[in-house]
Simulated scan of single mutants.
Amino acid sequence: MTLRELTEPVSLTAGDGRVLNRAAVGWARQPLVDASRVHTRSWGRNKRWEYWNVTTPTHILALTVSSIDYAAVHEVWVLDRATERTWHAEATVIPARGVTLAPRLEQGSSRARAKGLEIDIDEVPGGTRLRARIAGVSFDVVAELPDGHERLAVVVPWSSRRFQYTVKDLARPAVGTVTVEGVTSDVPAGQSWAVLDHGRGRWPYDVEWNWGAGSGVSGGRVIGVQVGGKWTDGSGSTENAMLVDGRLHKIHDDLVWEYDLAQWRRPWRITGGGLDATFAPFYRKVGSTDLVVLSSRTEQCFGHWSGTFTTDDGETVAFADILGWAEEVHNRW
């Protein structure tokens, strides 16, 4: 299947904002879709979030700011790669309060305030500034946006009233600092990378997904890995792509995921659409929430991507040791 490429700005919703604008169904190389009216209708099904992950030679940093109408759900997580010690805080605030989400990507700030947690996401000249603070840890990082850098923007239509707009932004050069227990370390330029998952949509209650991403340099080329599955099945859309030196190569095929969470250290394999990738995990992060109406289970493994990708032009790009993650998530929300 080949999804239509969007090249002009378009609204995600039609009419009074209750239904999907079919003209928005497709994919783009930049965040062209206006999803600002998602939260104005159909209260209870709207999901909005910003998830950023930053990988450095010494740490992995992550933050989430989100609103799912009836709750605000936030998280800050930091891993020391050498010791595997973690610092973590999460908050589920019912009803949703203390949260601000930009109406459109890169057109405003996003913030979260909850007990023991502060997050600020701000657009600055040349990129996006990410700041987070929890007990024992804080970080201040700029995810730079190079000229011409492409992103994967996709609209996934389940029905006229259930749909998702996602932007997966890979291999953003990152620079800044992380402070752990009073000790400040650099987020060094040229060795650190930021990835964004920007989401706006109206979701079914019960959903599962796979997501994998990675960023780094291999063979002198900047590589971004973006793969997903399950949640897009049957929609006609996929969120699969490779980024090579800032140029996005869309993968229209559904991919085959082979992995066993019971033996999570075994390499995962993801294939299809010109991609033959192996993911070798070294750390597993497990999270769960059970608030009756709202429940979730996440198993996110961090590791390295290696493999080959053949472009539509027939070029085969080999890559190795690209740091990132692969996950399985089941939400009832």
Rank of each mutant, 00 (worst) to 15 (best):
G273Y: 02
L170P: 12
E315D: 14
G126L: 07
Y70R: 13
N53C: 09
S109A: 14
I223R: 10
K285H: 08
F139C: 02
T238I: 09
S159C: 10
L145Q: 04
R48F: 00
W203E: 04
W231A: 12
E50M: 05
T40D: 15
G274S: 06
G273S: 06
L243D: 03
G182L: 07
K230P: 01
G127Q: 08
H74Y: 08
V317H: 05
D260V: 00
W333F: 10
E328G: 10
P103A: 11
H198F: 15
A194L: 06
P157E: 07
A262D: 09
G176M: 05
D186L: 09
G201C: 11
P173F: 07
S110N: 08
V217F: 03
Q191N: 09
P57I: 11
V124H: 13
P9N: 13
A189Q: 05
N210T: 08
A89T: 15
E84W: 05
I60V: 15
G234R: 12
L6Q: 01
H330N: 01
T128P: 05
S185L: 06
V65A: 04
E106C: 14
A82D: 07
F163E: 07
K250V: 06
E8N: 09
T55Y: 01
A62Y: 02
T271K: 09
P173V: 10
V329H: 10
T184V: 04
I94M: 15
A174T: 11
N331Q: 03
N53Y: 00
P204W: 09
A277S: 06
V286Y: 11
R18T: 15
T40N: 13
L63G: 03
N46R: 14
V180E: 02
W43S: 09
Q107D: 13
A35H: 03
E328K: 13
I322K: 04
E327T: 08
G314F: 09
Q30E: 04
G234E: 10
V78C: 01
P281H: 07
K285R: 12
A189S: 12
V154W: 00
E123I: 15
I223V: 14
D206C: 14
G17S: 14
W158D: 13
T316W: 02
F139I: 03
Q300M: 07
M242S: 01
S138Y: 00
W203F: 14
V154S: 03
W87C: 00
M242W: 07
A171L: 05
E8T: 12
A35V: 02
T7P: 01
R113A: 10
F302W: 08
W264L: 02
E123A: 15
I270H: 02
D147K: 10
G108T: 12
D313C: 01
E258Y: 01
T64P: 00
